[in-house]
């Protein structure tokens, strides 16, 4: 039985679950333990069983349950967007005559992903691919 790699997201509404989790963090005043990289979420489904993983303190925070006949591993990787590290104005044109405005452009300097962040993201992707390969072969 072949399934697409992301069939879980299709059937179980992972997106809605993520939205609910984020809402829960707001209403409960809680925060996900490590917003940069969350731990992997490993899910095993064996037809009749229902597995619920709860992260304290919010009850509906990062909670997932479902039924599925295939064993798959889902890795969810949170990586922070590059932040604006610095912001400064720069004049890049000389003064013009009548009809010319002054030039003043704002430059935003974004932080870049660190080597560690980059490695973690790559590793997660490779692990995901390997795990899904194993699932299909079984």
């Amino acid at each position: 039985m072949a399934h697409a790699a992301y069939s879980l997201t299709k059937y179980l509404g992972i997106k809605d679950w993520l939205y609910r989790s984020i809402n829960a963090t707001v209403t409960a005043g809680a925060s996900i333990d490590n917003p940069k990289f969350s731990s992997d979420v490993f899910i095993k489904f064996n037809g009749t069983g229902s597995y619920t993983y709860t992260f304290p303190p919010g009850t509906d925070l990062l909670t997932l349950s479902g039924y599925y006949s295939l064993q798959e591993t889902l890795s969810i990787n949170f990586t922070s967007k590059p932040k604006v590290a610095d912001k400064f104005d720069v004049v890049s044109l000389p003064v013009g005559g009548e009809g010319f405005n002054g030039n003043r452009a704002t430059i935003l300097v974004h932080s870049t992903a660190t080597i560690l962040e980059d490695q973690q993201t790559s590793l997660q992707q490779i692990r995901q691919q390997l795990q899904n390969l194993r699932s299909i072969n079984q």
Partner: peptide, 11 residues
């Protein structure tokens, strides 16, 4: 153009 060019970084 006067407004457009005022916001760009020129070389």
């Amino acid at each position: 153009k006067a407004i457009r060019e005022s916001k760009n970084i020129w070389t």
